[in-house]
Computed example of a mutant assay.
Amino acid sequence: MTGKARHRVVIVGAGFGGLYAARALKRAPVDVTLINNTNHHIFEPLIYQVAAGILSPARWRCPCGRRSGARRTSASSSAR
């Protein structure tokens, strides 16, 4: 390997903060890994509209990191 190695950033959780961080680092010279226990992000403020049949379930969840440029992986984490 020539030159300096790229830094690696691991983001745990694909909530609003995790997705915002992944998108902010999209053009940075780092390798980003986004870890979440599911492969999608759910926009919870719209759940009542899905329950009422006003909104399609496909409209309130989207794949994690689809536009972030991050490598995605599924995993769980816990603090002990």
Rank of each mutant, 00 (worst) to 15 (best):
M1C: 03
T2V: 05
T2Y: 10
T2G: 04
T2D: 13
A5M: 12
A5P: 03
H7C: 13
I11T: 04
G15Q: 09
G15T: 05
G15R: 06
G17K: 07
G17R: 02
L19K: 04
L19C: 06
L19H: 08
Y20D: 15
A21E: 02
A21F: 06
R23C: 14
A24H: 11
R27M: 08
R27N: 13
A28S: 08
P29W: 04
D31M: 03
D31G: 08
T33F: 05
T33P: 07
I35E: 04
N36V: 12
N36I: 09
N37F: 06
N37V: 01
N37Q: 10
T38W: 12
H41R: 02
H41V: 03
H41F: 04
I42C: 12
I42S: 14
F43N: 00
F43P: 05
E44H: 15
P45T: 08
L46T: 12
I47G: 09
Q49E: 15
Q49G: 01
V50A: 12
A52G: 11
A52I: 11
G53Q: 09
I54F: 10
I54R: 09
I54M: 07
L55T: 08
P57Q: 11
R59M: 14
W60H: 14
R61N: 10
C62G: 12
P63C: 03
P63R: 06
C64E: 03
R67V: 10
R67D: 15
S68C: 01
A70M: 07
A70Q: 01
R71S: 07
R71G: 02
R71H: 07
R72F: 14
R72P: 08
T73H: 15
S74E: 13
S76E: 10
S77L: 08
S77W: 11
S77M: 10
S77K: 04
S78Q: 05
A79D: 11
